[in-house]
């Protein structure tokens, strides 16, 4: 029974991906891509990865989807084109890609069996962290350095996007709300955020022991914030505003501070003192969730459109 479901999912996934690539209308293709994100979420559930499923649906599908839709609306008809391939060229590329896929498929089939795994190591070590969700343990303990540097990557992407504003208005606010806010949107922006914030906080809170965590929670909070800004209920913040910058930097800064603390009270950089691992990790996650929420929302909002209020 499950095999049938898996096969159907796989076929649907590939058909939809092909549709995204082949569809002529740009907007239809992007909407199909959004659906692809949801489908991928289901696939991740079948791969026993609920944490990834949440992340994929929230960021991979939803976040990227809204980003692309906004871009399509802004670019409509004047998007940048490079010379496309000729028919023959396309066929050749398609053949090449098919060969790559086939080779890759072969490599996947040829992977070592029984599969090597760190699952035993990860579940043995988890006691030292006091966490219940092994994925969170990997992200915030075993491989915390990756997570720390990745936060810097997100921040840099934001710095890069902000730097695309013209000189005079750098540090100003992006433009997110439409000129006239439709009534239903304003209504939704009043109804939904209380729910959304509760859900976001819940996702962060259970993340230590159950599927969920900073990214997923941060995305939900970012979505709520964007919704409120889009409906014109709150103005978009100036990039230069100290409050925004503090929230953005707060998460990584606390992470770094605790990492350095490890030099003094534990085994070294990014080591947690025995018995205090869980509260420290939850504190880091709390700060990171806010930073991630602010960063993701600002990444979607784009560079400044009006000069900072000063």
């Amino acid at each position: 029974m499950m095999v049938l479901l898996d096969l159907a999912l796989a076929a649907w996934l590939l058909a939809l991906a092909l549709h995204v690539v082949m569809e002529r209308n740009e907007r239809s293709a992007i909407i199909a891509f959004l659906a692809l994100g949801l489908l991928l979420g289901l696939v991740w559930v079948r791969l026993a990865a609920p944490d990834v499923a949440l992340t994929e649906i929230a960021i991979g599908g939803g976040g990227t989807g809204i980003l692309l839709l906004r871009a399509e609306a802004a670019l409509r008809g004047r998007g940048k084109h490079e010379e496309g391939a000729t028919r023959g060229g396309k066929l050749a590329v398609a053949a090449g890609c098919a060969v790559i896929s086939a080779g890759l498929g072969f490599a996947v089939l040829a992977l070592a069996s029984p599969a090597p795994t760190l699952a035993p190591a990860a579940s043995d070590a988890i006691a030292a962290t006091g966490l219940g969700n092994p994925v969170t343990a990997v992200l915030l303990a075993y491989r915390a350095l990756d997570t720390l540097l990745e936060k810097v990557v997100v921040l840099l992407a934001l710095v890069g996007i902000w730097s695309l504003a013209p000189d005079g208005i750098w540090g100003g606010a992006p433009e997110v709300a439409p000129a006239a806010v439709p009534g239903p949107l304003a209504w939704l922006a009043r109804i939904l955020p209380p729910f959304g914030v509760v859900i976001g906080v819940y996702m962060f809170w259970v993340g230590a022991d159950a599927p969920g965590g900073t990214f997923q929670a941060g995305t939900v909070l970012a979505a709520m914030w964007l919704l409120v800004i889009m409906a014109g209920l709150l103005p978009p913040p100036d990039a230069a505003s100290p409050a925004l910058r503090l929230v953005l930097v707060g998460g990584p800064a606390l992470f770094l501070a605790i990492a350095f603390l490890g030099f003094i009270v534990a085994d070294g950089f990014l080591a947690y003192p025995e018995g205090f691992a869980k509260p420290l990790i939850v504190a880091i996650e709390a700060a990171l969730t806010l930073s991630v929420a602010a960063a993701l929302a600002m990444l979607v909002a784009g560079p400044a459109r009006k000069a900072p209020a000063r």
Partner: peptide, 27 residues
């Protein structure tokens, strides 16, 4: 998924890598 074991349905390490990867890809 292939690396399921030790009471876990899947190896958590690659899953965590994917989460990091998705965020980087979004940025």
């Amino acid at each position: 998924r292939r690396g399921a074991g030790a009471g876990l349905d899947a190896d958590p390490v690659p899953q965590a890598l994917v989460i990091t990867g998705i965020v980087v890809a979004f940025s």
